[in-house]
Amino acid sequence: MTDQPRQVGGGRRTLGGFAPKLAALTDDVLFDDVWNRPELSARDRSLITVAVLAAGGDTAQLGFHLGRAVENGVTQEELIEAITHVTFYAGWPKGMGAMGVAQKLFTD
């Protein structure tokens, strides 16, 4: 799985001046290490991340990760289907909230 683009975080850019340690952990551990491990492709990691965020109702982070998923090769149709699937396991309100985020992202 080495033919994929290197995943880079934006922690320092968005939070570096306010929460430098969290920004460094986001960039250096989560993205530079975990996201770039070869056992899963960035595409698979994106699909998993979107599903987990949707299931947890974490819509504040979902918009970013939907965009990242598209960059990593997940199609809009696949993301809509993943959120639809998650809705039945995680709960209707969480699924509807996640789909609202996706709709805003894909129609704006």
Score class of each variant (00 low, 15 high):
Gly9Tyr: 00
Gln4Val: 03
Ala24Cys: 02
Thr75Asp: 04
Ala54Leu: 01
Pro93Val: 07
Trp35Val: 00
Gly10Gln: 06
Ala69Leu: 06
Asp58Glu: 14
Arg68Phe: 15
Pro5Glu: 07
Val29Asp: 10
Ile48Glu: 01
Leu105Glu: 11
Arg68Pro: 00
Met99Gln: 09
Asp58Tyr: 15
Gly95Pro: 10
Gly17Trp: 07
Asp3Gly: 10
Ala51Leu: 11
Glu78Lys: 08
Val52Ser: 11
Phe64Leu: 13
Val86Met: 12
Ala19Ile: 04
Glu81Phe: 08
Ala60Cys: 00
Gly9Thr: 03
Ala90Arg: 11
Leu66Ile: 15
Ala55Asp: 04
Leu66Cys: 07
Gly73Tyr: 08
Asp28Gly: 05
Lys94His: 12
Leu53Thr: 02
Lys104Val: 05
Phe106Arg: 08
Tyr89Trp: 04
Asp32Lys: 00
Gly10Ile: 03
Met1Ile: 09
Leu15Asn: 07
Trp35Gly: 01
Glu77Met: 06
Gln61Leu: 13
Gln76Ile: 14
Thr26Asp: 13
His85Trp: 06
Leu40Thr: 02
Gln103Ile: 15
Pro38Lys: 06
Asp3Tyr: 07
Thr26Gln: 10
Asn36Arg: 05
Ala51Val: 02
Pro5Ser: 08
Asp33Gln: 12
Arg43Pro: 00
Glu71Tyr: 02
Pro5Gly: 02
Leu66Glu: 06
Arg13Asp: 15
Leu40Gly: 01
Ala69Val: 04
Lys104Thr: 14
Gly73Val: 08
Phe31Asn: 01
Gln61Ser: 14
Pro38Leu: 05
Gly100Ser: 08
Thr26Asn: 12
Glu39Ser: 14
Phe31Leu: 03
Pro38Met: 01
Val8Asp: 02
Ile48Met: 13
Asn72Thr: 00
Gly17His: 03
Gln103Thr: 13
Trp92Ile: 14
Gln76Trp: 14
Leu53Ile: 04
Pro5Tyr: 06
Gly67Gln: 13
Thr84Ser: 12
Gln76Val: 14
Leu22Arg: 10
Ala60Ile: 03
Val86Asn: 07
Ala69Cys: 01
Pro38His: 03
Leu53Asn: 05
His85Phe: 09
Ala23Tyr: 07
Thr2Trp: 05
Leu22Asp: 09
Leu25Glu: 11
Thr26Tyr: 11
Met1Arg: 12
Leu15Ile: 04
Thr75Met: 05
Glu39Tyr: 13
Thr49Trp: 07
Asp32Met: 00
Arg68Gly: 10
Ala19Leu: 13
Thr2Asp: 13
Trp35His: 11
Trp35Arg: 01
Gly9Cys: 06
Gly11Phe: 06
Leu79Glu: 02
Ala90Asn: 11
Thr84Cys: 08
Glu81Asn: 08
Ala42Gln: 09
Ala51Glu: 04
Gly63Tyr: 08
Thr14Glu: 09
Ala98Gln: 09
Thr26Gly: 01
Gln7His: 10
Phe31Ser: 01
Leu30Tyr: 14
Lys94Glu: 02
Arg13Leu: 13
Ala24Met: 07
Leu47Tyr: 03
Thr107Phe: 09
Leu79Arg: 00
Val29Lys: 00
Arg37Ser: 01
Gly10Arg: 07
Ala60His: 12
Ala51Lys: 13
Val70Asn: 00
Val50Asn: 02
His65Cys: 01
Glu39His: 11
Pro5Asn: 10
